[in-house]
C-alpha cells in the first residue's frame, strides 16, 4: 500500500519529467536528421573536400562521450563566448550533433545498400540524378534504414538522462529530485526505469508496424 502511495505522489513530477525528455528528444532528432542528411549528401557528393569534412565531423562526434560534449557546450562554449546557454539549448545541441553523426552513417549505409543497377536503370530512362535518387533510391533506402534509425532514436532518448548533469529536469533528474526529498530510492528508481522501458517499447512497436506497412512489394 505504501509503495503505491509513494509512486502515486511522485507520478505528476515524473510525468512532467517524461514530457521534457520526449520534447528534448523530438527536437534533437529533427535537427539530428537534418544534420545526418546533410553529412550523408556531403559524403556521397563528388567533392573530396566536402567528403573529408563530413568524415572528420563523424569521427569527432563518435569519439566524444555525450557527457563531455554537453560540458563542452554548456560550460566551455558559454565561457569562451561569454554567453549563457540554457540547459535546454545545450541539451538539444549536444544530442543533435551527436546523433546527427550516427544517423549520417546509417543513411549512407542505406543508400549504398541499394543495388547500383537501380540507379543505372533510372538514369537510362532519362531521369536526372536527383530525380533518380528521390523516386528510386531513397524509397528503397528508407526501408533498409528504418530499424537502425529507430535504434538511434532510442539511444538518443536514453542519452537525455545524461543531460541531467547539466541541470536539465528531464525524467531522470525529476527522479533524483524526488528522492532528495523523500529518500525512497527503490520505489522511485524502479518507477523511472519502468517508464523508460514502457515508452521505448511503445516506440519499437510503432516502428515495427511502420516497417511492416512499408514492406509491400518487397515480399
Amino acid at each position: 500500500m505504501k509503495f503505491f502511495e509513494i509512486v502515486g505522489s511522485a507520478m505528476p513530477s515524473l510525468l512532467q519529467g517524461l514530457l521534457k525528455t520526449l520534447e528534448i528528444t523530438a527536437v534533437s532528432l529533427v535537427f539530428a536528421t537534418m544534420i545526418g542528411l546533410l553529412l550523408c549528401m556531403m559524403q556521397l557528393s563528388n567533392s573530396k573536400v566536402l567528403g573529408v569534412i563530413a568524415r572528420i565531423y563523424v569521427d569527432c562526434m563518435r569519439g566524444l562521450p555525450v557527457m563531455v560534449l554537453s560540458f563542452f557546450i554548456y560550460f566551455g562554449v558559454a565561457q569562451a563566448l561569454s554567453i549563457r546557454i540554457s540547459s535546454d539549448v545545450a541539451s538539444v545541441m549536444t544530442l543533435a550533433l551527436n546523433a546527427g553523426a550516427y544517423l549520417s552513417e546509417i543513411f549512407r549505409g542505406g543508400i549504398q545498400a541499394v543495388n547500383i543497377g537501380q540507379m543505372e536503370a533510372a538514369r537510362s530512362l532519362g531521369l536526372p540524378y536527383g530525380r533518380a535518387m528521390r523516386k528510386v533510391i531513397l524509397p528503397q533506402a528508407i526501408r533498409i534504414v528504418i530499424p537502425s534509425m529507430v535504434n538511434q532514436f532510442i539511444i538518443t532518448l536514453k542519452d537525455t538522462s545524461i543531460l541531467s548533469i547539466i541541470g536539465m529536469v528531464e525524467l531522470t533528474q525529476s527522479g533524483k529530485l524526488i528522492i532528495a526529498r523523500n529518500f525512497k530510492s527503490f520505489e522511485i528508481w524502479l518507477t523511472v526505469g519502468v517508464i523508460y522501458i514502457v515508452v521505448i517499447t511503445i516506440l519499437s512497436r510503432v516502428s515495427r508496424m511502420i516497417e511492416r506497412r512499408m514492406a509491400v512489394g518487397n515480399r
Binding site: 543497377g117 537501380q118 536503370a121 538514369r123 532519362g126 531521369l127 518487397n218
Partner: peptide, 19 residues
C-alpha cells in the same frame, strides 16, 4: 538526360524497381 530518353536500355539483371 534528354538523349537517354531516346535510348532504351535493358540490363542483364533486369533492374526493375522492387518497391
Amino acid at each position: 538526360n534528354k538523349i537517354r530518353e531516346n535510348i532504351g536500355m535493358v540490363f542483364q539483371q533486369f533492374n526493375l524497381f522492387p518497391h
